[in-house]
């Protein structure tokens, strides 16, 4: 049976799984229970943050889950760069939230796009070519991945410091330097994941394309890349989210307030620096979550496909 037939054979089975009519909840009520519990578990913190963002009271413990009054003050404060009354007016000038926002999107977006692109190129080579050092290369990548990047934070700091003396554009306190460090962190895993997927694309597709007249790069662009889109979307999104969440390295490398990424910048609100302003912090977080949610919506189709597709092959 070819993989194509397998895929075809699998399709009707999916259709069978949704039978005409079945008494609701009968028999598998516990499934709903489990999923409800999972949802509550996942949604609770989000609810809390959203509620705190709209709550005029600026502390966490003081506010209930449902605020007594709803206010947009926190949003206004953070967007104008002037946080609530708890902060001094001097500090207010020092909070370029919009910069952080742009930095976040730029750094995460660039990391995601570049890591997907370079990862795909590397994965194609590892999946399709036999060359000396191939196994070693794969193993080294895997090994390096075993250590979280922040373990090397001192080394990274020193490297970036020194590199910055020669190439100031990618030195300390630059976003491009940060992106490069992030790329180093995610490329390995991404390459592995994509290679795994590309291995499942039958070789005969490449061969067929080559006989049809395609060069290796045409095979990559016209066959492999389109077939791998679901996985690329998933990996890109995961890299994006991962980078947005990253704090340690960014806080070590970035120095100037208006170069901060979101996580480093917002940390200031719950750090002692501006006193603890949970309301403003939460407003900032809620706004920062928007691009991820939007992206998720756009990529949803691919993600569902990408997470399940490996099973049946291309």
């Amino acid at each position: 049976m070819t993989t194509l037939e397998q895929a075809e054979a699998a399709a009707p089975r999916v259709a069978e799984a949704t039978p005409g009519r079945r008494p609701l909840l009968a028999g598998n009520w516990w499934r709903y229970l489990v999923s409800l519990a999972a949802m509550a578990f996942a949604l609770f913190p989000i609810l809390y943050v959203v509620s705190a963002a709209f709550n005029p009271v600026d502390s966490l413990s003081g506010s209930g889950l449902i605020p007594d009054t709803v206010t947009l003050d926190n949003f206004r404060a953070i967007l104008s760069g002037a946080p609530g009354e708890a902060g001094s007016s001097e500090a207010a000038l020092d909070i370029p939230y919009k910069n952080w926002y742009v930095n976040m999107i730029f750094v995460s977006g660039a990391t995601a796009v570049l890591s997907v692109f370079f990862g795909a190129l590397a994965a194609y080579a590892f999946a399709r070519y036999r060359f000396r050092g191939r196994r070693m290369g794969m193993m080294t990548l895997l090994l390096i991945q075993m250590f979280p990047t922040f373990l090397a934070v001192v080394a990274i700091y020193l490297i970036v410091l020194r590199v910055g003396r020669v190439f100031p554009a990618i030195g300390l306190d630059t976003l491009s330097g940060l992106i490069l460090v992030y790329l180093g962190g995610v490329l390995g895993v991404n390459t592995w994941l994509m290679k795994g997927f590309m291995d499942s694309i039958p070789d005969s597709l490449d061969e067929s394309a080559r006989v049809d007249g395609a060069t290796p790069s045409q095979v990559f662009w016209a066959i492999i890349l389109p077939l791998a889109t679901p996985v690329l979307a998933v990996i890109g999104l995961l890299s994006y989210i991962g980078t947005i969440n990253e704090f340690i390295i960014a806080s070590v490398l970035l120095d100037t307030t208006d170069k901060f990424t979101m996580s480093v910048g917002l940390y200031g609100f719950i750090n002692d620096k501006y006193a603890q302003q949970w309301g403003t912090f939460c407003a900032g977080v809620v706004l920062a979550a928007i691009p991820v949610v939007v992206l998720f919506f756009f990529l949803q189709r691919y993600i569902a496909e990408g997470l399940t597709r490996g099973a049946v092959k291309g």
């Binding site: 039958p202 005969s204 061969e207 067929s208 080559r210 006989v211 049809d212 395609a214 060069t215 077939l227």
Partner: peptide
């Protein structure tokens, strides 16, 4: 010569149609 320069066409056992 690489396959593309041989002016041949091949039909594969599993057809190798481009799924996308």
């Amino acid at each position: 010569l690489s396959p593309k320069d041989r002016d041949i066409a091949m039909v594969f056992q599993n057809y190798a149609l481009y799924p996308h």
